[in-house]
C-alpha cells in the first residue's frame, strides 16, 4: 500500500522466493520445474504465478459466500473471486465456538457453481487444512484470523505450497513477515463481521505511514528499522525502493458500502474483500454490484453517488471496543 495504486513490481519471484525447506513440517509438493533436452523449461507453482494471480484480482471485489447460490449471485454481480466459508464473520462472532476450515464438499460445490477463482480460509498455523485445500484444487488460501488460530507461535510455511496464500497484516512488519513466509498477497485485518471500517483504515494508514518513513531511510537506518519491526531486511529494502508493499495488497474487514470500498482504494489498496457486508444487507445482488463499480470508479465521486443510491439496508454495524462479542480478531497472528 502506498499513495498510488501503482501495481506490484513484475518479476517479484527473484526477490521474494525463499529457499524451500522440504524438511519443514507441512511441506507438500512445492513448485516443480522441468527442463527438456532442448533447454525448454516450464514450472508450476512459482512465486511468479502465485503473485500473478493476485495481480489479476486487482481493482476487484472478493466476496464471502456460504453456498453455491450466493456464489452465483456474487459472480453475476461482478465479483473477481469468492471466498467460500461456512459462516460469514458476523455469524462466527455472534455464535462463538471454534471456527475451522469449511467442509471440502461445500467448497467443491461452490467451485463447480462458478468460473471465477475460489478462495477458502484455514486457521493460522494449520498447515494440514492447507494441504487439504490444495488437494481439492482451491485457487487461493486465506490464512485467516477470522477462524480460531491453531498455532500460537507459527504461521504456515507458505513457500512449501503450490497454491498461493493471502494473509492479514496490521502493520508493515507483520506484512513483511507474512511475505517472507511465502504469502503472495496481503490484506488489512479490519475487524471482520462488524460492518465498521475504522480498523481497516487504521491498518492501511499505518502501513502507508511506515512506507513513507522508510522510503527516505539510508541503508544503515533500514537495518535498524528492520530489527525494530522484526521484518526481513531484504523485503524492507525492496519495499522502500518500490514505495509500496512488494505484493498485491487488499482491504478487508468492515467494508459495508460502496463509499467504504472507494475509501480503501483511495488509501492505496489494490482491491477489497467484502465479508458479511453483502449477504447481511437488505439487497445483496444490488449492493454487491454497486461495490464492484465503486472499486473501478473509486476516483469518480459522480459515479460513486450514482451507485450508492437506493441500495436498501446496509448490514447492522458494531462498535469496536474490548467488550465486543467474539473479541478483537485483529490481535490474532504473530
Amino acid at each position: 500500500m502506498a499513495s498510488t495504486n501503482d501495481g506490484a513490481s513484475p518479476a517479484l519471484g527473484a526477490t521474494l522466493t525463499a529457499s524451500n525447506d522440504s524438511n519443514a513440517p507441512g511441506s507438500t509438493t512445492p513448485s516443480r520445474s522441468t527442463q527438456n533436452k532442448e533447454g525448454v523449461s516450464s514450472a508450476v507453482g512459482t512465486f511468479g504465478v502465485k503473485s500473478g494471480l493476485a495481480q489479476m484480482l486487482k481493482s476487484g471485489v472478493i466476496m464471502d459466500v456460504i453456498n453455491a447460490e450466493q456464489a452465483r449471485i456474487a459472480e453475476e454481480a461482478g465479483a473477481c473471486a469468492v471466498m467460500a466459508l461456512e459462516r460469514v464473520p458476523a455469524d462466527i462472532r455472534a455464535q462463538g465456538g471454534v471456527a475451522r476450515m469449511s467442509d471440502p464438499k461445500m467448497i467443491k460445490e461452490i467451485v463447480d457453481a462458478v468460473t471465477i477463482p475460489v478462495m477458502a480460509k484455514v486457521r493460522i498455523g494449520h498447515f494440514v487444512e492447507a494441504q487439504i485445500l490444495q488437494a481439492i484444487g482451491i485457487d487461493y488460501i486465506d490464512e485467516s484470523e477470522v477462524l480460531t488460530p491453531a498455532d500460537e507461535a507459527h504461521h504456515i510455511m507458505k513457500h512449501n505450497f503450490r497454491v498461493p496464500f493471502v494473509c492479514g497484516a496490521t502493520s508493515l512488519g507483520e506484512a513483511l513477515r507474512r511475505i517472507s513466509e511465502g504469502a503472495a498477497m496481503i490484506r488489512t485485518k479490519g475487524e471482520a463481521g462488524t460492518g465498521n471500517i475504522v480498523e481497516a483504515v487504521r491498518h492501511a494508514r499505518a502501513v502507508n505511514t511506515e512506507i513513507k518513513r522508510i522510503s527516505n531511510m539510508s541503508e544503515e537506518e533500514l537495518y535498524a528499522y528492520a530489527k525494530e519491526i522484526q521484518a526481513p531486511f531484504h523485503l524492507l529494502k525492496e519495499t522502500a525502493r518500490l514505495k509500496r508493499l512488494p505484493v498485491v495488497s487488499f482491504a478487508a474487514g468492515g467494508i459495508a458500502t460502496p463509499a467504504d470500498a472507494a475509501l480503501m482504494m483511495q488509501l492505496g489498496c489494490d482491491g477489497v474483500f467484502v465479508g458479511s457486508g453483502i449477504f447481511h444487507s437488505g439487497d445483496p445482488a444490488r449492493r454487491a454490484r454497486a461495490i464492484v463499480q465503486a472499486v473501478t470508479h473509486y476516483q469518480n465521486p459522480k459515479i460513486l453517488a450514482e451507485v450508492s443510491e437506493d441500495l436498501g439496508d446496509a448490514m447492522v454495524g458494531l462498535t469496536i471496543n474490548d467488550d465486543i462479542k467474539g473479541g478483537r480478531l485483529a490481535k490474532r497472528g504473530w
Partner: peptide, 15 residues
C-alpha cells in the same frame, strides 16, 4: 475454453 489448464495450482511459466 476458459481455465483450460485447471485451477490455480496448475498455473505455470514456460519459455
Amino acid at each position: 475454453g476458459r481455465n483450460g489448464w485447471g485451477s490455480q495450482v496448475e498455473s505455470f511459466e514456460a519459455d
